[in-house]
Amino acid sequence: MPLFKKNPFGHILFIKKWLIRVLGLMTHQRYKGFNKLEIDGSEIIRALPERNVLFVSNHQTYFADVVAMFHVFNASLNGRSDSIKNVGYLWNPKLNMYYVAAAETMRKSLLTKVLAYVGSISIERTWRADGQNVNRKVKFSDISNIGKALADGWVITFPQGTTTPWKPLRKGTAHIIKKYKPVVVPVVIDGFRRSFDKKGLYVKKKGILQSMVIKEPLQIDYDNESVDEIIEKLEYAIEQHPSFLKVIPMEELMAYEEAHKERMWRKKKA
């Protein structure tokens, strides 16, 4: 690879590679030390094409979710089976991997600017800005940038646009799917909200079992399915459809809490 080769967004790949290596080493213990990340679906990652893949996921923190995905996806591509053991996979990371994030978030500090260089496609949110609800038009340059990233590689997006669970999915994701016809891979995560602060920068609690389930690509009729039909399909796939909300009987809730205690990971004898 030429030393100063750039990606379509003008980022120097040599610098990006070293940022992924360093940040990966700094964050690995968050998922394989302080807490444990349980993974399911590594074989799906290895079977995906090199380009035009869109990962859709529920969202629990600003950054910890996507950092975990960078770990899991790179570990899977380097032969790990549902594991991020041995950080040697960071030496040769996938460089054409991107994630969608709010532009205002990625401009806030030096750290967020570094994280943006690693692979952010920064977009202007149409519904919220600076903590206030807004109503503004979609920037076509944002849509085209996502298309550019898909043409180059893989894109991770959180279609709810918020870390609050059960919120409706933004229809822009369905429009992107219909326009660019990517392979759509659902990802369901859990445990990150309990183990990290909202931004996902600090470990809030140790001994939490985090989970990431990578599902089979969705079957989508890009030309004939409507935006609403695709949105509903995504909601079910990432387990955020309103039907998942139901009243849980007290005995079932208590049984869940007991099961959760058993799932809590604690250090054991080597």
Score class of each variant (00 low, 15 high):
Met1Ile: 09
Lys5Cys: 10
Gly10Phe: 14
His11Tyr: 09
Lys16Tyr: 04
Trp18Leu: 14
Met26Gly: 11
Phe34Thr: 09
Lys36Phe: 08
Glu38Thr: 09
Ile39Ser: 06
Glu43Tyr: 06
Asn52Glu: 13
Val53Trp: 03
Ser57Met: 11
Asn58Tyr: 11
His59Tyr: 05
Asp65Cys: 06
Asp65Met: 03
Ala75Asp: 08
Asn78Val: 02
Tyr89Trp: 05
Leu90Tyr: 01
Leu90Thr: 01
Lys94Thr: 10
Leu95Phe: 08
Tyr99Ala: 05
Val100Leu: 15
Ala102Tyr: 02
Glu104Leu: 08
Lys113Met: 10
Val114Phe: 04
Val118Gly: 02
Ile123Gln: 11
Ile123Phe: 09
Glu124Ile: 12
Arg125Glu: 08
Trp127Asn: 14
Asp130Tyr: 13
Asp130Val: 07
Gly131Pro: 04
Gln132Leu: 13
Gln132Phe: 07
Asn133Tyr: 13
Val134Ala: 06
Asn135His: 06
Ser141Ile: 02
Ile143Gly: 02
Ile146Trp: 00
Ile146Arg: 00
Lys148Phe: 03
Lys148Cys: 06
Val155Arg: 00
Ile156His: 05
Gln160Cys: 03
Gln160Phe: 04
Gln160Glu: 14
Gly161Asp: 04
Gly161Leu: 05
Thr162Gln: 00
Thr163His: 02
Thr164Pro: 00
Pro165Thr: 11
Trp166Cys: 13
Trp166Pro: 00
Pro168Arg: 03
Lys171Cys: 02
Lys171Glu: 15
Thr173Asn: 07
Ala174Glu: 05
Ala174Tyr: 07
Lys179Ile: 03
Val185His: 01
Pro186Asp: 15
Val188Arg: 09
Val188Ala: 12
Asp197Gly: 10
Asp197Pro: 07
Lys199Tyr: 12
Tyr202Val: 12
Val203Tyr: 06
Gln210Asp: 10
Met212Lys: 07
Lys215Tyr: 11
Leu218Ala: 13
Gln219Gly: 01
Ile220Asp: 10
Asp221Asn: 15
Tyr222Thr: 02
Asp223Ser: 05
Asp228Pro: 04
Leu234Gly: 08
Tyr236Pro: 03
Ile238Leu: 12
Ile238Asn: 09
Glu239Arg: 13
Ser243Asp: 13
Met250Ala: 12
Glu252Phe: 12
Ala255Glu: 10
His260Ser: 13
Met264Ile: 11
Lys267Asn: 14
Lys269Pro: 10
